[in-house]
């Protein structure tokens, strides 16, 4: 087994006086799928936003694919290009068509020739089954389609790691499935994934391990089956009894 692609050691983060992350230790190996769950405000989103340095941690070490993230990191853009992210609010660029959304970063960041980038983007859009929407603008798509487009956009950068920040929380119930299906396909293709979600069905289906967070700490981390069958911590039990 290859060594860890993400390593977090004793990571601490404060927003002002409020400590959002407390001594986080987390290792993720290549092709591993991790689901992070926990009550709102427990620091899940902040945790994964630290991995591509959308948030800066103040103490501890985060190493992504051999590069340590710190203020001194020069090529943070290079690391970010290898770490794709899907957001709760999709965050598509509303002034660009879906296809342009997908090709913008490959063309300007990775310097892929336009034609090649477009071909690759169409392939990704086909994967998430919205190739027919390529010429439309984000505002003309449904929530589920937008989120799948956002997934395709991230995949167009051919990332090594994918981060999902509550990808289905802003969607209507009937659209959740289409997004989860796309994510399951991606997982089966062997992507390294860290998913913050409340969709326990998804966790059971694809996750190798589940991490439970509360009040900025990792309370429990276990193999998926163990996590659901016999949770050890009281708080985990309480959370599971409420959510399942």
């Amino acid at each position: 087994m290859s060594e860890s692609i993400i390593q977090m050691k004793e990571v601490n983060k404060w927003f002002g006086d409020f400590q959002v992350l407390k001594d986080i230790n987390l290792e993720v190996k290549e092709k591993q799928k991790i689901v992070v769950c926990g009550p709102s405000g427990s620091g899940k989103s902040t945790l994964i936003r630290c991995i591509n340095r959308l948030e800066e941690h103040q103490k501890g070490q985060i190493i992504v694919d051999g590069n340590e993230l710190s203020e001194k990191t020069k090529d943070i853009e290079k690391i970010r290009a290898e770490v794709g992210m899907v957001f709760q609010q999709f965050n598509l660029f509303p002034h660009l068509s879906i296809l342009d959304n997908c090709t913008l970063a490959p063309i300007w960041v990775k310097k892929t020739p336009k034609k090649k980038a477009e071909e690759f983007a169409m392939k990704q859009l086909e994967q998430v089954q919205i190739a027919d929407q390529a010429a439309k603008f984000p505002g003309q798509l449904s929530g589920g389609q937008q989120q799948r487009a956002a997934l395709a956009r991230a995949l167009c950068m051919e990332p090594k790691i994918m981060l999902f920040d509550e990808p289905t929380s802003a969607l209507d119930p009937e659209m959740i499935k289409e997004v989860l299906d796309a994510m399951v396909n991606l997982a089966k293709a062997g992507m390294t994934m860290i998913v913050v979600t409340h969709e326990m069905g998804f966790a059971k289906e694809v996750a190798d391990e589940v991490v439970f967070m509360d009040e900025g700490m990792i309370v429990e981390r276990a193999k998926t089956n163990d996590f659901f069958a016999n949770p050890k911590n009281e708080r985990t039990k309480l959370f599971l009894s409420q959510i399942l």
Binding site: R80, F87, A105, W108, A150, A154
Partner: peptide, 21 residues
């Protein structure tokens, strides 16, 4: 919205590329 900045950064764009595109 801040999400636009987040999305651009997460795709590996630097400051100027993010601003311009």
């Amino acid at each position: 919205p801040r999400g636009q900045y987040d999305a651009a950064k997460s795709l590996g764009m630097g400051y100027w590329k993010m601003q311009i595109f």
